[in-house]
Simulated scan of single mutants.
Amino acid sequence: MLDVAVIIVNYRTAQLTIDSVAALLADPSMPQGSHIVVIDGASGDGSAEVIGKAINGNGWSDRVTLAPQDVNGGFAYGNNRGIEVVDADLGGAKSYLLLNPDTVVRSGAVLALADFLDQNPNVGIVGSRLEDPDGTLQACSFRFPTALGELESEARVGPVSLLLRHWRVVLPVSDRPSQADWVSGASMMIRRDVLEEVGQLDEGYFLYYEELDFCRRAVDLGWQCWTVPASRVVHLCGRATGLPSKGPKVNRRPSYWFQSRRRYFNKYHKGFGALASDLGWLTGQGIWHLRCWLERKPNGDAPRLVGDFLANRGLRAN
């Protein structure tokens, strides 16, 4: 059995995936009993061929497996197929690291996660400290969202954030490991026992909210979720999805983001709770728009965000 199986799901990001694999293999602290599985989600742009040539040309074939798929089923689908490849073809693993293709691990990042799981048997999921290339911290540790948390996250006004600080979704990350409700799926390691108890990631989510859903199911069964800042991972945020969260150009949010959000709140909050979360989100947006109007500045959000939110609100979770 492998110590660590790293799963990277590629969709039309061949060079990012190759760079991510190269960083993993260049890390001298990578656990000896580790293997990387790259899932190509029917990219249709030659990605599988490019990645395959890189694996063979760099002599990586003993440490990297490429598994092209016939369909692009999304993040949960791709990672589930990767876990199945590990279990069926590689004898399984003690832990599974789900890693975005737009990440570059810093030295010791994978080992820090694996060691934390080894030393803490009650912890089932661990996440990395995500950062920009210059070391600037990104959001990576979170509370489960609530209606008040949705309001705070969208309002972005100091007095509101102070009042609702106990419901704020984004948690601070210090230099010490800290417990969270859930961690970012950009670099998330899962103990084998958790997968056996919780089951696969929910493939009803195409992209976004699937790691939140999985962590919630694990926590509901008594497992703990922690962020380990010694595991530092550069996350080129939005490069894999085409949805950068900051910068001069923010793209319109795709319908599957709204569908995933709707699925999550329908699944865990139901009825009035799901409605309250929507009202909290819309109220927060209203406060934010008012602030931007008063300050005479653009709001910086994705184009047509509120209109798209309302248009997609009627979508029902499967």
Rank of each mutant, 00 (worst) to 15 (best):
R217E: 07
T227L: 15
M188F: 04
C237T: 12
Q32N: 02
I8F: 02
L25G: 00
S255E: 10
A317L: 11
N100M: 02
R316V: 11
A218M: 05
A180I: 04
R192H: 12
G41P: 00
Y208S: 13
S260Y: 04
I125R: 05
S260I: 02
V157K: 09
E49C: 07
S255P: 00
P101G: 15
K246R: 09
A22M: 02
V228S: 05
N80V: 12
L137R: 08
E154F: 01
G91A: 13
L98V: 05
K297A: 00
V64A: 12
E197A: 15
P133Y: 04
F214Y: 15
V38G: 10
S141T: 07
S153G: 06
A311T: 06
L275T: 14
V183T: 12
W281F: 14
N312P: 01
H166N: 13
R216A: 07
D301R: 15
Q224W: 08
D301Q: 04
D193H: 13
G242C: 03
T13W: 02
I83C: 05
P177Y: 03
D220E: 15
I36H: 06
T136Y: 01
P159Y: 07
S187F: 01
V234T: 08
D89E: 11
F116E: 05
S107H: 10
Q259S: 04
D62E: 11
A114S: 12
G158M: 08
N120L: 08
W223D: 14
A14V: 03
G82C: 11
A276W: 13
W257C: 11
V85M: 08
V160C: 01
N100I: 04
T241I: 10
V173Y: 08
Y208Q: 12
N251Q: 11
L16T: 01
G314E: 10
R12I: 00
A218C: 06
A114Y: 09
R81A: 13
P101R: 10
L163P: 00
L294S: 01
A42F: 12
T241C: 03
D87P: 00
A230L: 03
N79Y: 11
I51G: 08
Y96C: 05
L275Y: 03
L97I: 04
S174W: 06
S107M: 09
V110K: 10
M188Q: 13
R191H: 03
L207M: 14
I55W: 07
T241K: 09
D45A: 15
L111T: 03
T17M: 05
V170G: 04
I55P: 00
G33Q: 10
R263F: 00
T146F: 03
L207P: 04
W226M: 13
F206D: 07
V50L: 15
T241V: 05
R232A: 02
W226T: 04
L195A: 05
A14D: 05
F309T: 12
R81V: 02
M189N: 07
K267F: 01
N100G: 08
D213A: 09
Y256A: 07
D40Q: 12
S61G: 01
V38S: 09
V85W: 10
S245G: 11
V194P: 00
Y205F: 13
V183P: 06
S187T: 09
A22D: 10
A180E: 08
V306C: 05
H289F: 11
V123Q: 04
